[in-house]
């Protein structure tokens, strides 16, 4: 995109347009980010270096003491494990469900209604979604009737009710289901648009050549929408790294469901230094995506 040379301008004109936005972004994003990095090297009082919290005879990473906590504290290890689990299972899960539905909905006449339904959770807050699903997972452990849908079904089938949210063997998966429910619509929308953008002739040609629908999907569609899948995946990775509200409202991070962002939130008052180190950890994890996005953007610009 080049500016028409004919539109001459004063030297300071661009800055008149840019300044408000740049100042706000500097004050609210850039400066705090670096300040957070700085705070992560201080202890909980934000007045002494982080090494002040070291206890003799205990391991200590000096000025990086808060990072020792962020990387080795048992709770943090659980949080890191869970975030990894979310990334490994939920990102593909959401993309696959979204893609599946995009492909299937494409073939039915009531496509727009069906897509609206899948997409609807995007309109409500994560907090609201958390409540909806707390109710679905609710377990009555005494003599009363099950009022949570899933446990009512289990009991009706003659099984024991399950504590979906407190049983460490399954609660992380129960939370991920909520995540898929929330985000599948997002993936579906973008992938569906990509599918519709595919040139009809190419698909037709493949079908004429005798390819089955299955083959058309794997051999033609999938490769062609791969760039979009990558975009959706990176976005989901960012979303999942920051996953917070769902865990906060459904389990509060108890029972081994802790995640990085919730840990950061819990410590924000009681131990700012550690909390900030966790925040830094979070941004470090997003930097690869950031670099990737910037590169992709540069490539797209160059191709323009």
């Amino acid at each position: 995109m080049t500016v028409p040379t004919i539109m001459r301008q004063g030297r300071w004109t661009p800055w008149f347009y840019l300044l408000p936005a740049l100042v706000i972004m500097f004050v609210f994003i850039v400066y705090p980010t670096f300040n957070t990095v700085y705070l992560s090297f201080l202890d909980k009082t934000s007045t002494r270096p982080a090494s002040a919290a070291c206890v003799p005879d205990e391991p200590c990473w000096g000025i990086f003491e808060n990072y020792r906590y962020a990387l080795t504290n048992p709770e943090m290890v659980i949080a890191l494990r869970n975030n990894a689990l979310w990334l490994l299972l939920m990102v593909p899960g959401t993309v696959i469900v979204g893609l599946l539905f995009a492909v299937l909905a494409d073939k039915v006449p009531y496509e727009s209604v069906a897509k609206s339904i899948i997409f609807m959770p995007m309109a409500i807050s994560f907090i609201g979604a958390g409540i909806i699903w707390r109710f679905v997972y609710y377990i009555e452990t005494g003599g009363g009737e099950q009022i949570g849908l899933l446990n009512a079904i289990l009991v009706a089938l003659g099984r024991e009710p399950v504590a979906f949210l407190s049983n460490p063997a399954i609660n992380n998966f129960a939370l991920m289901v909520v995540g898929v429910w929330l985000w599948a619509g997002f993936c579906m929308t973008i992938l569906s648009a990509a599918l519709k953008g595919l040139p009809a002739e190419v698909l037709e040609a493949a079908r004429v050549d005798g390819a089955s629908e299955w083959q058309v999907f794997w051999k033609v569609m999938l490769p062609m929408i791969m760039p979009t899948i990558v975009v959706v995946t990176t976005t989901m990775v960012i979303n999942i790294l920051k996953i917070f509200d769902i865990v906060f409202v459904m389990t509060g991070g108890n029972y081994g469901t802790e995640v990085i962002a919730n840990r950061m939130f819990k410590l924000i008052v009681t131990d700012t230094g550690r909390s900030m180190a966790i925040a830094v950890l979070l941004i470090v994890l997003t930097i690869p995506i950031m670099v990737f996005n910037v590169r992709r953007f540069r490539r797209e610009e160059a191709a323009r």
Partner: peptide
């Protein structure tokens, strides 16, 4: 380009400051 990068700064990074 920086702006593109800024889009994904986690807001957790800025809360305390």
């Amino acid at each position: 380009a920086i702006l593109v990068g800024l889009q994904i700064v986690p807001l957790q990074m800025t809360l305390v400051p």
